[in-house]
Design a protein around this nucleic acid. Structure first.
Length: 559
RNA sequence: GCCAGCGUAGCUCAAUGGUAGAGCAGCUGAUUUGUAAUCAGCAGGUUAAGGGUUCGAUCCCCUUCGCUGGCUCCA
């Protein structure tokens, strides 16, 4: 036996088995659990000293338990829980007897390294969950079903958004027309909002000389995520895993003055990182992706205000995309393993302090996460909560005193002397791939009107109405809507079904009645038949919905 | 990368140690319809790839590739 803790959504237990679990084992074990529950066996707590516990588990041949005991302080009192012939190490508390268990289900099994260390043996882990009632359990299982239905890989296929091609290689995303359109809308919005806030938007190359990556520290601290160098006319080049060195070069292209600062340089920059094959997951974890990256060069005095500006931009973006809740984390170094990071203690302390001050000034509660910093500096990492309450990695904001040093970046101050600027690295959306995949799941594919690839489908009742349908579609296009006019020889019900399945927000049904009165019969994908209204009235309403980027319809679609 | 499982038509899935079948999608034709599927016909597959066992493999074995669930890692 390994360990078997309770986790957020249930529990697991690790075993070192001679032969791995097979699916039938789950049923057998679950049946045995039910039997034990029905026997209502008392669960008794017992406290022993370390030596006693050690001998006990050593006699039983439970070497993993012995290792756990050995890691506890010598004078610790160790609690055991005994249930019939079974005894286990546990801090507790436990239910008084097995009959207290009302609804237990084993879910799946998988390999897991002993103590999470890939150099240690791999154990067989079994996952399960438990609830106070069968109803609660059922609700949980229904939620798992809902998660499956929303899976971006499934929806991307159904809605024809993007794909990954086996012939092209794993972890490389192909954006189909509709997905590309959503991405374009998001990128346009991103650019507009960044320009408003004083960002310059740039482009940089995809490869650079190996020496550049040595200067930046990537070669030393990030090599295992980079693709092998390629020789071009006997000079080695590398594919970029990050955009920062390029932005630094652009900053250094001229002598900068304090008057140029803060300089905010943004780029939708495509990077390539080697990700181990087992970690790839749809568009959420890929090998080539486009970050909504930006680097702010500023003075130490400007740093805090710049961080506040980034935090406010992040909050604005998250809200616009319908993420109402989020959690902030201050990611700092792993104090045990400083060799993983570039730079000295002092600059790390300064950077961390600046981030902390910004969080405090914005009144944002946060937790400190050790070992979560990037190799060049500490960060604020924001996790957003989606419509199903799941947490996703969102914006990340990093302070970097090291790269300006390594690249000898300077600006000329009021005093005529050269000074060292500070750098902020930040992304708000993360990457287009991950962000859009997240949105697909957040909205279950039913994007708000402003993001929907097709906003309106016009459905003539019969072929002879095609003329009016096309007139309606043309009028809408003239107003800037993305319109599909469905002139196929199918019945209206079939066309409605098609549009529903494609999650088109509005379907406009037109027949003789509508043509005579210059109206359209409006059907909303979630609200159903909304009756006839003059075409201009529909246009006005839809424009209003667009202008507010309203999520009202989303809320409606979930009830 | 590691542990386990999976890979059959564009998609969802059947079937079998004896030259693979359905629904949807596609194409052709008919139908002209009032709020989630009109009807008929046609076409579509070296059963992921390579090797082995066998009289014969899609099925059994091995290797490779890819995917899925986890672990480790991460935008």
């Amino acid at each position: 036996m390994g360990i078997g803790p309770a986790i957020d959504e249930g529990f697991y237990y690790d075993f070192d088995l001679k032969s791995p679990f097979v699916p039938e084992d789950l049923e057998k074990i679950e049946a045995e659990m039910k039997k034990i529950v029905s026997e209502n066996i008392p669960v008794v707590r017992q406290e022993v000293d370390r030596e006693t516990a050690r001998k006990m588990f050593s006699d039983m041949g439970e070497d993993y338990k012995v290792e756990l005991i050995d890691d506890l302080p010598e004078d610790s009192v160790i609690s055991l829980y005994r249930q019939g012939e079974f005894v286990d190490l546990c801090a507790g508390p436990h239910v008084p007897s097995t009959g207290y268990l009302k609804a237990v289900k084993l879910l799946n099994f998988a390999g897991a390294y002993w103590r999470g260390d890939e150099k240690r043996p791999m154990l067989q882990r079994i996952y399960g969950t438990a609830f106070m009632s069968q109803d609660d359990l059922k609700q949980y299982l229904d939620k798992l079903e809902e998660v499956k239905k929303r899976d971006h890989r499934r929806l991307a296929k159904e809605l024809d958004l993007f794909s990954i091609q086996e012939e092209g290689g794993p972890g490389l995303v192909y954006w189909h027309a509709k997905g590309a359109l959503i991405r374009e809308i998001i990128e346009d919005f991103w650019r507009k909002e960044h320009r408003k806030r004083g960002y310059d938007i740039v482009y940089s190359p995809h490869i650079a000389k190996l020496d550049l990556w040595k200067t930046s520290g990537h070669w030393n601290w990030y090599r295992e995520s980079m693709y092998a160098p390629m020789a071009i006319e006997e000079v080695e080049y590398m594919l970029k895993p990050m955009n920062c060195p390029f932005h630094i070069l652009m900053f250094k292209n001229q002598t900068r003055s304090y008057r140029d600062l803060p300089m905010r340089m943004g780029e939708l920059g495509t990077v390539y990182r080697y990700e181990r094959s087992g970690v790839l997951h749809g568009a959420l974890r890929v090998r080539g992706f486009t970050q909504d990256d930006a680097h702010v060069f500023c003075t130490r005095e400007q740093l805090e205000d710049e961080l506040i500006g980034v935090l406010e931009l992040a909050q604005f973006m998250l809200t616009t995309f319908g993420y109402a809740e989020y959690e902030c984390m201050l990611s700092v170094r792993d104090p045990e393993n400083k060799a993983k990071y570039v730079g000295d203690d002092e600059s790390w302390a300064l950077a961390q302090n600046a981030l902390e001050q910004a969080l405090l000034r914005k009144n944002l509660p946060y937790t400190v996460e050790e070992g979560e910093a990037k190799f060049y500096g500490p960060a604020i990492d924001i996790k957003v909560k989606d419509a199903l309450g799941r947490r996703w990695q969102g914006p990340t904001i990093q302070v970097d005193f090291n790269n300006p040093e390594r690249f000898d970046v300077t600006y000329v101050g009021e005093d005529g002397l050269r000074h060292r600027p500070v750098m902020i690295h930040r992304t708000v959306l993360g990457s287009m791939e991950r962000f859009v995949a997240g949105l697909v799941e957040h909205y279950a594919g039913a994007f708000p009107l402003w993001l929907s690839p097709t906003q309106v489908t016009v459905i003539p009742i019969a072929d002879k109405m095609a003329g009016y349908a096309e007139k309606v579609a043309a009028a809408l296009r003239e107003e800037g809507f993305r319109v599909n006019c469905d002139l196929g020889h199918e019945k209206m019900g079939f066309k409605i079904r098609q549009a529903q399945m494609q999650k088109v927000p509005y379907m406009l049904v037109v027949g003789a009645r509508e043509e005579e009165s210059g109206t359209v019969s409006v059907r909303h994908r979630a609200g159903g038949d909304m009756g006839a209204m003059p075409l201009d009235a529909f246009i006005r309403g839809a424009k209003e919905e667009l202008a507010t980027k309203s999520l009202e319809m989303l809320v409606k679609s979930q009830t």
